[in-house]
């Protein structure tokens, strides 16, 4: 099993770097070419969510992305924001998406979660083992080489 770990300051500019690395490692791990767009989007969404949470709570801690391949390609995106910030994720119905009362932040969070849930078959959001924070874990199948 090979592991690549990337940690970055919680700034939007670095999310693109995480996407690029995540897709490069996925390709090398043997994830099917037709899934790479979904890998790119999902890693981006998970990192965007982590950066937003760190900024919301004024946390300078690094966001970590850990990619590993064995029987599958697993990506963990780890933040250190309080757990309560991560609950309440829900896919929004169409009539609420365009509602005036919905804030931009709530809309982006809801849409981001819809994309994660829609593009990743094997998705888990769970507390980190030590200290505050959550881990978004995503798994994709790999082709045997």
């Amino acid at each position: 099993m090979a592991t690549v770990r990337l940690s970055f300051s919680p700034a939007p500019v670095h999310v693109r770097t995480a996407r690029l690395v995540g897709v490069a490692v996925a390709r090398r791990a043997g994830v099917a070419e037709e899934l790479l767009d979904e890998v790119r989007l999902a890693i981006g969404e998970a990192c965007t969510r982590a950066v937003a949470l760190h900024n919301q709570y004024g946390l300078a801690d690094l966001v970590t992305v850990e990619m590993s391949d064995s029987d599958s390609y697993a990506v963990r995106v780890i933040d250190h924001a309080p757990i309560e910030a991560s609950v309440g994720l829900a896919k929004l119905p169409p009539d609420e998406l365009a509602a005036e009362s919905l804030t931009d932040e709530a809309l982006t969070t809801g849409v981001g979660f819809a994309l994660l849930a829609g593009f990743v078959d094997d998705l888990q959001v769970r507390p980190v083992e030590d200290g505050p924070g959550t881990e978004v874990r995503m798994v994709w199948p790999v082709q045997r080489r």
Binding site: R19, G44, E45, T48, D104, L107, T108, V111, G112, L115
Partner: peptide, 9 residues
């Protein structure tokens, strides 16, 4: 070439 939730927002 790429559009995420922030762009959709």
């Amino acid at each position: 070439e790429f559009l995420d939730s922030t762009g959709l927002g």
